[in-house]
């Protein structure tokens, strides 16, 4: 139980550390092109090799981590900030017209693919990382609203919620004090899944040119640009891919571990 939490935090922390360090130092300037050094395999000078413009892949990954993590994190944040209260609200008034209105509104958003929303936003505001965040974040809202409502409904029938009602507490307070903490495990797991999906969605949006714009690197765009070069220089695709996989894996492990660590029932006896 502790092993998964430690390993997960280590992997996720590494990605975060890469992003933070890149703000003050990178091994090479990512703006500097050196076409003579293009597509070099890993070497003492360029630990992870160079890309098709001769830029250092390690430096690109470090700077790209900033974009990628920021996009996924903020997108999950938007989804939770709006989705969880909506879900709790719908569960509290379940069966009523308001519940129907909230959930059908969510279905409406769900019915649009995130890509279509992204294109819509881009058409209005122009392409940028911020708009990618918005598009992915809006798409996350119904996911969290549904998970929260589905998780909260059975809790409303439990005796401890009845005890809270007998103690005079209203629906909002019960949702905040009793339901939310007991839904945490569900939300943490869903959060890590959405975070992983967010990284992939950012990659997808960048690939069609709706995400981070050149020269700002992102893992998704690095991967997208490398795919045609895979046969001649596989390392250009492998390293950003590995970065995505390890970060997503780390987050999932950390999510599982965190869920267990936050549950008093699973805590070791002191």
């Amino acid at each position: 139980m502790r092993v998964s939490l430690t390993l997960g935090l280590l992997l996720a922390g590494m990605a975060l550390a890469l992003a933070l360090v890149s703000a003050i130092w990178t091994p090479h300037d990512i703006q500097a092109m050196a076409l003579a050094d293009k597509l070099n395999p890993p070497s003492p000078k360029h630990w992870l090799g160079t890309d098709q413009f001769g830029r250092d892949i390690l430096s690109m990954l470090m700077v790209g981590a900033r974009t990628t993590i920021a996009v996924a994190l903020v997108a999950v944040g938007i989804g939770m900030a709006f989705g969880v209260p909506l879900g709790l609200w719908a569960a509290a008034v379940s069966g009523s017209g308001l519940d129907q209105a909230i959930m059908r509104g969510n279905d409406l958003i769900f019915a649009f693919p995130s890509l279509v929303i992204a294109i819509l936003i881009t058409a209005v505001f122009g392409p940028s990382a911020i708009n990618a965040i918005l598009a992915i974040g809006i798409f996350n809202i119904p996911v969290f609203a549904r998970v929260t409502r589905a998780g909260a409904l059975p809790l409303w029938t439990l005796d401890y919620v009845r005890a809270a009602r007998i103690a005079g507490k209203g629906a909002a307070r019960i949702s905040l004090e009793h339901l939310l903490p007991n839904l945490m495990n569900l939300l943490i797991v869903q959060g890590t899944i959405q975070f992983s999906l967010g990284i992939l969605a950012e990659a997808g949006l960048s690939y069609v040119g709706l995400g981070a714009q050149p020269p700002t690197p992102s893992w998704g765009r690095m991967l997208a640009e490398a795919q045609t070069l895979f046969a001649i220089a596989p390392h250009v695709a492998i390293f950003p891919g590995l970065a995505i996989v390890l970060t997503v894996l780390g987050l999932n492990l950390a999510g599982d571990g965190l869920r267990d660590a936050l549950d008093p029932r699973l805590r070791r006896a002191r």
């Binding site: 401890y160 005890a163 005079g168 507490k169 549950d263 008093p264």
Partner: peptide, 19 residues
């Protein structure tokens, strides 16, 4: 089922003080 598993006993017992 009649206790929130995430609350300490002290907090659970004190809950009706809300009234």
């Amino acid at each position: 089922g009649s206790f929130d598993p995430r609350w300490t006993v002290g907090r659970l017992v004190a809950e009706p003080f809300h009234l």
